[in-house]
Design a protein around this nucleic acid. Sequence first.
DNA 1: GTTATTTAATATACATTGTAAGTATTATCA
DNA 2: TGATAATACTTACAATGTATATTAAATAAC
Lengths: 112, 112
Amino acid sequence: MKQAKSLGEFEILILAALIRLGDQAYGVAIRDEIESRSGRPVSIGALYPTLSRLEKKAYVTSSIGEPTAVRGGRAKRYYALTAHGVKQLEKSSHILFKMLHGLPGWPTGTTS
Amino acid sequence: MKQAKSLGEFEILILAALIRLGDQAYGVAIRDEIESRSGRPVSIGALYPTLSRLEKKAYVTSSIGEPTAVRGGRAKRYYALTAHGVKQLEKSSHILFKMLHGLPGWPTGTTS
DNA sequence: GTTATTTAATATACATTGTAAGTATTATCA
DNA sequence: TGATAATACTTACAATGTATATTAAATAAC
C-alpha cells in the first residue's frame, strides 16, 4: 500500500476551515466558513461524511460539547486537526501552490 | 442547484500542467511536469482516464500528432485546454487560494 | 405539558473522481 | 527478426463527493 496519499479538494477546504475556526469548528460553522470565505457552496449532508472519513484517517479528532441555552441549542460536535492532519494539509497545499502559482487567474502578491 | 461543479484535486493538477506545457502536452510529458514541479507521484494509468473524463466534460480537447523518428516514437496524443476548462481551473484555484492563503505552511509573499 | 420551531447531527444511497495493473501499438536497435 | 523503448489504451476497483431524508435535542408558544 502506498502511503502519503493526497487529500481531495473538499477535504483540503475542510481542513483549512478547521484551522481558521480554531475551537469553534463544528458542522454548521465549518460550512459557513467555507461558503463565506470562498463562495463555494457546501451542503451539510456532504460535510459530515467527509469529516467522518477524515476522522477515520486520523487527520481530525472530534468531541461533543455542552448544550447551550438557546433555542435549538443542541450539543455540538467540535472538530480539531491532529498533527498528522496539519502535515497532510501542508503537503497538499504545497503541491497545489507549486502547480498553480503564476498561472493566469492566480492571485498575485498579497491579498486579504 | 447543480451549477459549476468543482474540479477534483488531480484534475486541477492536470489542467495546470496543460497550461504550463502549451503545445507539448501529451501523456508522459504531463506526468513528468506534475512530478518534477510538485513532487507528487503520478501513475500513467491514473492519468489517461482522468484526461478522458476532462475531455468528455469539454474542459480539454485532444488530437493525435505525427510519429517521430526516435525509438518508440509512436504518435502522441496532444491535449489542450478549452476556454471552458481555463475558466473552471481559475474558479477552483481561486476557491483554494481563498481558503489556504495565510495558513501555516502556505508560502508567503512573492512567488519564486 | 403538549406541540411547534430551531439548530445541529446522522444515515442512506448514489455519483464522481482517483488509481493500479495489465495490455496494445509502433517505433528503432542489434 | 527479435529485443527494447516510448507511448497510449482498457479494465476494474477504491476513494471521495454529494443530495435527500431522517433523527435528536433544545426552547418557545400556546
